[in-house]
Write a protein that binds this DNA or RNA. Structure first.
Lengths: 145, 145
DNA sequence: CGATACTTGACCAGAGTAGTAAGGTTTCCC
DNA sequence: GGGAAACCTTACTACTCTGGTCAAGTATCG
């Protein structure tokens, strides 16, 4: 399935912030980029979206940076995706407006929604804390090889 | 979630073919378009993809048309989607190639795959026969109002 | 004041999407 | 055999989304 760059970068940045949440100081953009190998100019916009969504908070000025707005256990992948993905509510599919009225189309969309729901539920069950823990776990297993 | 036009049209066409599977004659493009309100010029391409995927077979020449290659119970939404969606295996995400090597990125992708898997399983559980039955069911419930 | 660092808006190239156009090929039927 | 019906194929267009860059603005610390 498609994991687009925005969602990937947002998640990586959030994981990095979660990992450094213990030290009180805000984390600079540069720090995140260096740790996660993400283009800085691009990450700026993504962090801005995360801020608008209330997932991170920012501190301006010298020695500024970003911080998670809430504990890592309460921020899920689903939330991150919703924040950066174009929501894509497809306000008016234009030409396919007529097709949308058919009974078959309605049935189909119900089915589709069930699938989307199943996916969202998995994503809601994975928090930043989980991801940090999993990453640490694989790191340790690698150490013992 | 995003249900794109190709997948929607492919599914609607397949449902129509499933519904008319009892009469032996192949179903013409025009017939499908009229029934499902889908642009003919576009549906041609989609049916071609379905044919390449082995989901439908075609009969050329006058009195030709399309037919399901297999019984409607054995064709699932997942299969339809795979047939028309750009597979998008993203062979090399180019610039994000470096990011792909990080441990966090691997962890994240595992999580994402679990979500994708859950969605695919739902889609695999819905056949054309199911969709036809559901559409008929809602039609009957509407009749009794 | 000046350096650091977040904020904002404009911009751009490439890919994918939805759809159209037109000509070629196959088959049926008179 | 000659239409005509209907599928097959390639090409093209308009538009949007995506990934990413640039540059100027603003806030804060020292």
């Amino acid at each position: 399935m498609k994991l687009n760059a925005r969602t990937e970068y947002a998640s990586l940045a959030a994981v990095e912030l979660a990992r450094r949440a213990s030290d009180g100081a805000p984390v600079g953009l540069r720090t995140i980029c260096d740790a996660q190998r993400v283009p800085a100019r691009f990450l700026v916009h993504i962090l801005l979206e995360l801020k608008r969504a209330g997932i991170v908070v920012s501190v301006r000025g010298a020695a500024g940076g970003y911080r998670l707005a809430r504990p890592p256990e309460s921020i899920t992948l689903q939330e991150l995706r919703a924040a950066v993905e174009g929501s894509s509510e497809t306000p008016t599919p234009l030409t396919s407006a007529l097709a949308g009225t058919s009974r078959d189309a309605a049935t189909l969309r119900d089915a589709w929604q069930a699938a989307a729901r199943a996916q969202a539920e998995i994503l809601e069950g994975i928090s930043l804390a989980d991801l940090v823990a999993r990453s640490r776990a694989t790191a340790e297993s690698m150490y013992y090889i």
